[in-house]
Design a protein around this nucleic acid. Sequence first.
DNA 1: TAGACGTGGAC
DNA 2: TGTCCAAGTCT
Length: 325
Amino acid sequence: MPAPTALPDPATLSQLHERIGAWFRAHARDLPWRAPERTPWEVMVSEFMLQQTPVNRVLPVWREWLRRWPTPAALAAESPGEAVRAWGRLGYPRRALRLHAAAAAIVAEHDGEVPADRETLLGLPGIGAYTAAAISVFAFGHRETVVDTNIRRVQARLISGRALPGRGMTAAEMRLAEALLPRDREDSVRWNIAVMELGALVCTARSPRCEECPVLADCAWVAAGRPEPEVAPKGQAWHGTDRQARGALMAVLRAASAPVPRALLLDPRLPEQAHGSAAEADDVVRAVRALRRLEAPPEQLRRCLEGLLTDGLAAEPTPETVALP
DNA sequence: TAGACGTGGAC
DNA sequence: TGTCCAAGTCT
């Protein structure tokens, strides 16, 4: 059972707003998707890419993506496979597929303009509670409660006195975020991004930099003597998993511009065939060797390939070959 | 609601 | 080295 959460009184809350706001003005990173002239589409692309992926890895892919596809219509005009290829090594390539599908829906149903309200955004592929709120706030300046993993962690420590939030978001956390949100619209936008930034830079999951925290004196977790987390981390297995095998299969498809023989994917011990340019052939050979090194059971490779086809991450131009969709 | 879903950097 | 973690979404 979560510890009871005492809401700060109005004076304290106002002080929290002030201190975290001042900290943000002094320490915020200069991230391109925060520039005031950014379009809603540019913000939306950043939010998709930032789902479970660190800022530093997103930056170059975001720039190249928007150079190629500066509008939803530009992306929708491409094949989904090109989106998956441009996604590169960001991970969770289904996000590329969903971003492409969302662009198509925006063109088909919203005159090519990113919707401004949370409810409409929620109807788009790949947009859940967090991303809908984030786009509404960061692209359109609306007053909405945004609750991401950073904000949950800051709230858990600062207000609830716990080391980490639980696995799933609770209604209580949502209510707490609403209660903390400044009334003024512009202040609320600033608050959301500032708390996220505080969580990302100072109130981090592993080794929080409490000495740099602007609200250290108000922190319920510190006041409680920094108790240990209540829930043990889940621990993601990796070696030998389907996720690893799917990733290796996708790497081969991304590297190849021509369809790849199905037999090569299912039995990567086969000799690689020539693919396109010499440079590309090198990339394909490298990817196939990485797949081979997994020494995944043939049964697993078959299952994973079928999964990629089912998910739409791969297609079969012919019965004997596989390619990006 | 718990589990699946990529990838690479930090400790 | 292995574990943990990252602006989540979907089923």
